[in-house]
Write a protein that binds this DNA or RNA. Structure first.
Length: 938
DNA sequence: ACTCTGCGTAGAGGA
């Protein structure tokens, strides 16, 4: 039984006498979510009354298993015993955040601001955890240690440590783990075979039901996290610190209890799903189904000197998990969710933390000093200016709003009804398992046959792979290796030929692949908070002056000529080279922006500068490297994941595993380091500093995203075009959707230069964009560029084209009709246009098809398997000789996708020689800009 | 109402 609704009122808690003695109660009024109308009263008893301290009208509340009672014809609910309430259940709290909060609420806040530090205990702890996982998988301890240290090579090297030294440290911990595991095996009653033959053989995980690194996501409690290990349904947490007390640390117990709570939910769900339990009639609540013990394994205990330490030195400490502890975890989780509801800032007074013993005391005081926040530890230092504080708060709130949007994505994981699935493009469901294979290194390749449904899941994405139910079933994080047409030779596990869409993923554990879900990650939001913190709280005031308009950016004169035949490009390089603070290069489509960037980078390198080259996407970073390569410069280190970096750029990629000294040395000695802005916010690059940061496609970046790169350098150059697509963000307001590039170019036009000659489009094709978006300033670089025509291509004959497609720009109205986000008839017409160009001798490779919606892209893709078909957004950055645009909309132009005119600019400026617009004239004419576009094209 | 890329996923410890 569960209730869910919005809080409309919270009464003052009071104490009443009951048959059991004095008791606290608090009444909460809820407006039920689904229509039911009449508000419901819920009475909270005992400790649940604490909720009244932070519960507010407007918050969403879920009530599980309340006691029901009829009173004067009205149903009343009360919460106590095994019932529970969850505040803002859509907000998913991390288990480690619950852990931090019970230490001190301020620690929870500080973790969000400044999370990318590199520290030896953390790196060592990570290695020990990985070794623990390997031991559970039955691997040899020495092999595991060597391999995991190699994996952490870069981090270890950046910390200035040697592999041998770390191996020594890790070995002590590993032995403790091994000893404990073996002891467990020998004493287990069901490990009789081991005990009976009396042999002292090593731990074998197959003999007991262990599971390592279990990802848990709880819909019911609004929590997520990953347990180190689960042994017979009970949580086991590994801690590489020391604890000589008899009891585990409180926050460690809380962490393990949070996993226990989510394991209880899973157990209750699977019991409810099984027929056995249903016939018994008595379903168990998650609190009842939760394991009643947890284990903390303090591995450092085994390594301490027994002569110097007193106390309990056994590494493993068991504790019992009762309903009180489980409910405490829920209440703590609720406090966090409630604070996030109105993006408050914790002061530390909420808890009984003793600041003088806190490791974060200095950071805590510094942050509260810089931001003039109230905190229990007090303030130190001088506050940043008020306008910076306002900026900080505005962006902090905007980033947290993005985080909530990520959380809403999780809700899709538990949508199970067919109707919900039907319009859910975040999942691929009803897959048919088609085999599995173990790969080197213990990972698995899983295959399935897809239904061909449209989804946002793409190759290279991180997804949740499951047996059909990502929340309660068997689920593993996986990487999508392939989604596409099966090769005719492929077979499934039974040797049967597989036809249709073939799906291949890799994961740590095998499972029957029946469903893939997008795995929402908060990583970007974490990195943005980090960048915001570093830029505002740790940068020197002088560096921030130009960002906050307290000073104009300065330039020193540069006389040198860098580019002979293009004054604007040459000016851009001189501006960048002479910039004391920053320079802005505005590069409309086809203006040689990337070429200029590469030339600029070389000029800076020649002056001895160390450079960070960055952009939002891997594609943009690799394109920039390609331009450098074309100019003969290859002294580059590319930092990024293997799956993110383009195949031909892998040779520049920094190997993060290997000898620590070598890994760190390669990065430290690199003159040019290239990485996405997200990677710039990570630990590896946080350890580096640069003279200049050069950021490409800066119009696509949020302000904090840009700052992630620029804060690492003394000066910066932003290259981009704010008339093309802005950053993709969930929130509607301008805070994040406006780029720093745009703000600065408007505030300091003198610091920018616009590249005005384009080398891509024929005169007629560029005319509309030039007029609408670039004040008529954009023009063809040469007469040849202006006059190019489709029959310039070898073997192409203009006469072979239908009359209406012979002009450089054409408009076709196929009289189709929009169905959802597709227009099948329009797709047919697009296919006919493409066929006409093919028939006239244009190679398929020279043709691109663009549509605003992904659904229409799929529709077109089916008809045009040989041609590049994609969304406007994904086509940005590339071009084709012939571009056909499908507008889809009929009747009217309603929809957010059509509101941003910059999307038209991108779509129309991809074409070099021929551009064909296919759409409904009536719909397009309803809007002034689109109407002018049709008039121009016709 | 749409568009969608990132990131070793989250958590790793100090006393």
């Amino acid at each position: 039984m569960q209730l869910r609704g919005v809080v409309v009122g919270v009464e003052e808690p009071k104490t009443v006498s009951t048959q059991y003695g004095e008791s606290d109660l608090c009444e909460v009024t809820l407006r039920p979510e689904r229509g039911a109308g009449e508000p419901t009263t819920v009475t909270l008893w005992g400790k649940w009354t604490e909720t009244a301290d932070y519960l507010e009208a407007g918050m969403e509340l879920a009530v599980y298993d309340p006691d029901e009672r009829q009173y004067r014809g009205e149903t009343q609910y009360s919460v106590g015993g095994d019932s529970a309430i969850v505040v803002e259940p859509d907000f998913l709290v991390d288990v480690t955040d619950v852990r931090a909060w019970v230490q001190c609420p301020r620690m929870y806040y500080l973790r969000k601001l400044d999370g990318a530090d590199l520290a030896y205990p953390l790196v060592k702890g990570t290695v020990v955890h990985e070794v623990f996982g390997d031991l559970l998988r039955g691997r040899d301890v020495e092999t595991a240690i060597d391999e995991q240290i190699e994996q952490a090579g870069l981090d270890i090297g950046l910390l200035g440590r040697e592999a041998d030294e770390v191996a020594g440290d890790v070995r002590d911990h590993a032995k403790a783990i091994e000893g404990w595991l073996n002891q467990g095996t020998l004493t287990d009653s069901d490990g009789a075979a081991t005990a009976a033959d009396g042999s002292d053989r090593d731990f074998s995980p197959a003999e007991s039901d262990w599971r390592s690194e279990m990802t848990l996501i709880s819909e019911r409690f609004g929590m997520k996290g990953r347990a180190d290990a689960v042994r017979r349904g009970t949580p086991v947490e590994l801690k590489t610190g020391k604890n000589t007390k008899r009891e585990p640390r409180f926050q460690d117990k809380i962490q393990a209890t949070a996993y226990a709570l989510m394991l209880g939910e899973r157990a209750a769900n699977s019991l409810a799903a099984s027929d056995v339990m249903a016939s018994d009639g008595g379903a168990q609540s998650p609190l009842e189904a939760a394991p009643d013990t947890g284990t903390l394994l303090y591995t450092k205990n085994a390594a301490v000197d027994r002569n110097e330490e007193s106390g309990d030195l056994s590494p493993a400490k068991e504790f019992s998990i009762g309903s009180g502890l489980l409910q405490y975890v829920i209440r703590t989780r609720n406090e966090i969710a409630a604070m996030e509801y109105d993006t408050g800032v914790p002061t530390g007074y909420e808890a009984n933390a003793k600041c003088e013993y806190c490791f974060e005391q200095d950071t805590c005081m510094a942050v509260s000093g810089r931001l003039d926040q109230e905190s229990k530890a007090g303030q130190v230092g001088v506050a940043i200016p008020e306008d910076e504080r306002e900026y900080f708060e505005r962006f902090y709130d905007a980033i947290e709003a993005e985080r909530r949007a990520v959380h809403r994505e999780y809700a899709k994981l538990w949508e199970q009804t067919p109707e919900e699935r039907a319009d859910d493009d975040r999942a691929l469901v009803d897959l048919e398992p088609a085999g599995r294979a173990e790969l080197d290194g213990g990972r698995w390749e899983l295959r399935a046959k897809g239904t061909g449904a449209v989804s946002k899941i793409r190759e290279g994405n991180l997804v949740l792979a499951s047996d059909g139910d990502p929340v309660t079933g068997d689920a593993e994080l996986a990487r999508v290796e392939r989604i596409g047409e099966a090769r005719s030779t492929s077979e499934n596990a039974n040797g049967e030929a597989v036809s249709g869409e073939e799906i291949v993923v890799t994961a740590d554990e095998p499972l029957d692949l029946r469903r893939l879900d997008v795995y929402p990650s908060e990583l970007t939001t974490d990195r943005l908070q980090n960048a915001l913190h570093d830029a505002l709280l740790t940068q020197a005031p002088e560096r921030k002056d130009v960002l906050f308009g307290r000073r104009d950016p300065e330039f020193s004169a540069v006389e040198e000529t860098f580019i002979d035949n293009n004054p604007a490009q040459d000016e851009a390089v001189r501006l960048a080279v002479g910039a004391e603070d920053f320079a802005l290069v505005h590069g409309p489509p086809g203006t040689g922006k990337t070429y200029t960037l590469a030339r600029m980078l070389r000029a800076l390198v020649e002056r001895g500068d160390r450079i960070l080259l960055s952009a939002f996407t891997n594609r943009a970073v690799d394109n920039a490297i390609e331009a450098l390569e074309e100019q003969g410069f290859t002294d580059i280190v590319r930092v990024g994941t293997e799956s993110g970096v383009r195949e031909d750029m892998q040779k520049y990629r920094l190997e993060q595993s290997g000898d620590p000294g070598e890994c760190a040395g390669t990065l430290r000695n690199a003159q040019v380091v290239a990485a996405t802005t997200a990677t710039c916010g990570g630990t590896a690059l946080q350890s580096q500093s640069f003279d200049v940061a050069v950021v490409d496609e800066a119009g696509q970046l949020t302000e904090p995203g840009t700052l992630a790169a620029t804060t690492l350098a003394d000066r910066f150059v932003l290259v981009g075009d704010h008339q093309q697509l802005p950053p993709v963000v969930q929130s509607e307001d301008e805070t994040l959707s406006r780029s720093l590039f745009q703000r600065l170019i408007e505030a300091s036009p003198e610091a920018g230069v616009m590249l005005d000659r384009q080398y891509r489009m024929a005169q007629h094709i560029q005319a509309f964009a030039s007029r609408e978006f670039y004040d008529g300033q954009l023009r063809p670089a040469t007469g040849e560029v202006a006059a190019q025509r489709i029959d310039d291509l070898p073997g192409v004959s203009l006469d072979a084209l239908p009359a209406n497609l012979r002009d450089r720009v054409a408009f076709v109205d196929p009289d189709g009709s929009q169905v959802g986000n597709t227009n099948p008839r329009e797709a047919d017409a697009v296919a006919e246009v493409v066929a006409a160009y093919r028939g006239a001798g244009v190679p398929a490779d020279d043709i691109g098809v663009i549509a605003p919606f992904r659904a229409q892209v799929a529709e077109l893709d089916r008809r045009l398997p040989d041609v590049a078909v994609d969304t406007v957004d994904r086509f940005q950055g590339s071009s084709k000789e012939v571009i056909v645009v499908s507008f889809v909309a009929t009747g009217s132009l309603d929809g957010p996708i059509f509101e941003d005119y910059r999307r038209i600019n991108v779509a129309l400026t991809r074409a070099k020689k021929s551009l064909v617009l296919v759409g409904d004239e009536a719909a397009l004419s309803a809007d002034d800009v689109y109407r002018r576009m049709v008039e121009w094209a016709r």
